[in-house]
Design a protein around this nucleic acid. Structure first.
Lengths: 253, 253
DNA sequence: AAAAAACCTGACCAAATAGTCGAAAAAAAT
DNA sequence: ATTTTTTTCGACTATTTGGTCAGGTTTTTT
């Protein structure tokens, strides 16, 4: 039986408990949101994000998170019950920030503006929370066992809706024909690659790590790629052309 | 001292042994390539690829690989010494098939042809060995601890060389200006996303899993994306236009 | 102030797991 | 045929790790 007090999660039968996720975890009696609780949970989640990102679910030990959070291990169990509970809470947190960027795709907007804002948002996320991106990537690569329900419902719905908006834009002649779904996959791929595969990018660019300048270059490159793909620009947009026509590659300052 | 016979790898001091990788593992006395050895190593590596891809390095147990390969666990240790040795051997194998596709970028080729062939190759790899792609992706996300040397030497060199070819094409006015390095990152990202994040893509497309048709669609989409980005096509290429050209917007040229 | 609730934590398990060993079977070499 | 090398594999071990717990401390409520 569960001990610590708040660990609960009764009926500890199945190890692969299919908690809905998104349904805001019906588990722990998160009672109120007491001052300390709020603080400590946040502290733990922040630590967990870094550790899970570096090591993956199985490579992560509760001990490691505890040390990163500078709290005794038993505390993590006090607040989140199990390792999986903690992981789930973390995923919830990460996912929240993930779908919101979609709101840029409003029917009445200029496609070019929408795409630009979307890419900028995504890249900002990549810069500010690369760990979150890695946690998510890791989860998907390993079969999305904890988020498959989310993917098939909320994400799919959102994507379908926004794909419809893009289809309308195309129909209205406001942008070149592109499969909206695959366009999204490409957008996700090219933006997240700078968070998930940062090490590889840095290695190829011969830098110790990706700096802000590199990510700005990347953003401009992606914007150009997207806008050209959608027939929304014929030449590199104003901001820092990647090459002066005729000139030879004066890339990143 | 090591047991089984061939496990060797003396001087077992550092757990994080920095074996060069690529330097063809100076460890196990892979003696000859005796009939059985060849066969069994291959069998084990095949099993390992699947298991490592699904579960990541830490999530993988030697037992699981052994079962997948239908061999006793001790045999894996006999052939590869340690779990890490096996993992390393697997990475070597995967990496081999990774850089070769670069050979499409020859100075005297037509850019459009080179890109087309490259993308097709990458997508073929994605279809035929999605597991290999996942193993690699996982390794990079978690810091590329085993392949960082490879990334900083062989991969970087190859990329730089091919980036120069592309820069020449641009200078010669054979394609639109694009930062060659970032172009590569984008190419990798959009092609591998269909292997690494297949679950997500399938979920959004409302399919149980990605089929050949989906990957063909993806390939066409990517080709369009790349060619438009490089100013090598104004309209979707013949194969399965993603939308009927009923639209105006005869963008760039 | 006193009672109750929430929080903290060192010490302690049981299970899982990488790696080992020894002896026997199979293959290859002589 | 005999020796030598390679391969097989059940059983064993040391270590790691998720999770528990009892009793203490702090905070909140009444």
């Amino acid at each position: 039986m569960p001990g610590g007090g708040a660990t609960a999660q009764k009926s500890g039968e199945e190890p692969h408990d299919q908690t809905p996720l998104l349904a805001d975890v019906p588990a722990l009696p998160r009672s109120n949101g007491s001052r300390t609780r709020q603080l400590n949970e946040d502290r733990i989640l922040r630590a967990a994000e870094a550790v899970f990102a570096e090591a993956g679910f199985n490579g992560t030990t509760m001990q490691a998170i505890a040390e990163a959070a500078k709290l005794p291990k038993a505390n993590l169990h006090y607040y989140f019950g199990t390792k999986e509970g903690l992981y789930r809470a973390l995923l919830n947190r990460v996912l929240d920030g993930w779908v919101d960027a979609f709101d840029h795709f409003q029917p009445d907007r200029e496609p070019a503006d929408a795409f630009t804002d979307y890419v900028r948002d995504k890249m900002r996320f990549t810069r500010q929370r690369p760990m979150a991106s890695k946690v998510f990537a890791n989860e998907i690569i390993h079969g999305a066992q904890h988020v498959s329900h989310y993917l098939k419902t909320k994400l799919r719905d959102r994507v379908d809706k926004k794909a419809a908006v893009i289809a309308d834009w195309i129909r209205a002649g406001k942008m070149a024909p592109v499969d909206p779904h695959h366009l999204f996959f490409s957008l996700w791929a090219v933006t997240q690659t700078y968070a998930d595969f940062d090490v590889q990018v840095a290695a190829v660019l011969a830098k110790p790590r990706l700096g802000r300048g590199d990510l700005d270059d990347a953003t401009n490159h992606i914007l150009m790629l997207v806008l050209r793909t959608c027939g929304l620009s014929e030449a590199p947009p104003g901001a820092r052309p990647e090459t002066r026509p005729e000139t030879r590659i004066e890339h990143h300052t």
